[in-house]
Design a protein around this nucleic acid. Structure first.
Lengths: 130, 130, 130, 130
DNA sequence: GTGGTCTAGACCACG
DNA sequence: GTGGTCTAGACCACT
């Protein structure tokens, strides 16, 4: 489920955070679900446990995860807000990009057709979330 | 014209690169136009000349700028390709974002209306370039 | 392996770039091989680390090297194209030189014999690569 | 006869030196011929007279030119050695290039055919020197 | 005055 | 320990 690209410029701990957020967003992880144990995940991904620890700490700082010493880390119930937050972010980014597109002379219908095309895709992930 | 945010996580020299690329994209800088002198820009932005130098070097490595020691730095004639490159980038980013939007349950017409709204904006910059 | 001539008119960082390209061309450095650490090479060559850093940055801009902060700098897998690029360069330079030779009244067979002589050399490096 | 490329990275004064050496090599300028007047050449090339002056000074330092204050600069009689010097240089560079060609796996007959091709060219400049 | 190179030394984030 | 960024200040060559 969780993968990291060691060659990427993005810090590994950040990749792990993003992976887990993604799992929450898609519903694969629900509130009070337990996250993989730090040591196990470290072995699976062949990376340093400290790095996993750091990722979990960042998630905890964002209230996406809570941890119980000796038991593990769990998805917070507030994690469901993630969807709304992310939605707002995306719409904002879209606005910025569309604005720049316009500056560069990209026509409105070029964007519309791109959008339509994406919505016509047969994406497995989408199927899962239905 | 060129501004930097010292607090940003993005390196200063990269901000300068982006600023200048933006000026080229908007047509504010045309091929063979002269860029601000390294030292002058450094003073204006209250930044070390080495940092400006680094930015210019990166732009030169990308063939967006050419420098003649003793004379100055100038916009390359090949810089006009920038528009096409940037256009492709944007369409790609748009596609990714729209795809994620769909995953999060954002409706197609929500995006359409956002697009329409942006294209209806009265942007001064757009007016100028007409 | 890597040496620099402080007295040369060619910038030190460029000498380092060329040295590394050469190592890649001869196969001494292969894709994903690790380059010497910036600070270590700086000490070995008795040169400021910034200069090494600059060299590595230029190589990265040319996609010959990729760097992962905290891990090191590595030969890119695309670096293998270097051979083709260099070959084209060489043939071009040869053409120019031969043309000038002709202007100066050097006979064709003088060049042929020089070529034959070089190909008859017993070069250790060539032996190794067989 | 003499041209400069203001956009080139090669210093203008060096371009002028090379141009003049070339004229001597092709026989267009013979011993005791007078070089163009500094001011006139500066006007013709639209560059700073100091730059021309510097070029002539460099040539004088290499004994390719001698100057008589108030009369002008003239091609030295020793300038004819230039051909021999240049010939040696070229053969040396050729040797180095051919050696690298061999390392990169370029076949001997590839170089031979390139040489033959150049010698078969119909170059006007060559015609002149006959 | 221009760009270009280099040094010395600092601080940061990552693993 | 790694690479990456930045500053301060020096010197050079070219115009």
């Amino acid at each position: 489920m969780i993968t990291v690209d060691l060659k990427s410029r993005k810090p590994i701990y950040e990749q792990i955070c993003d992976s887990i957020k993604q799992l929450v967003l898609t519903g694969a992880l629900k509130p009070d679900d337990r996250l993989p144990a730090v040591r196990k995940l470290a072995v699976d991904l062949a990376i340093n446990p400290n790095t996993i620890q750091k990722a979990y700490m960042m998630l905890e700082a964002q209230s996406i995860v809570y941890s119980i010493p000796g038991k593990g880390s769990f998805v917070s119930s507030e994690a469901e807000n993630l969807t709304n937050v992310r939605r707002a972010e995306i719409l904002n980014q879209l606005k910025t990009l569309v604005r720049e597109s316009r500056h560069l002379g990209i026509a409105e219908n070029e964007i519309s057709s791109l959008t339509a095309q994406v919505f016509a895709e047969n994406d497995d992930t989408v199927q899962q979330t239905i």
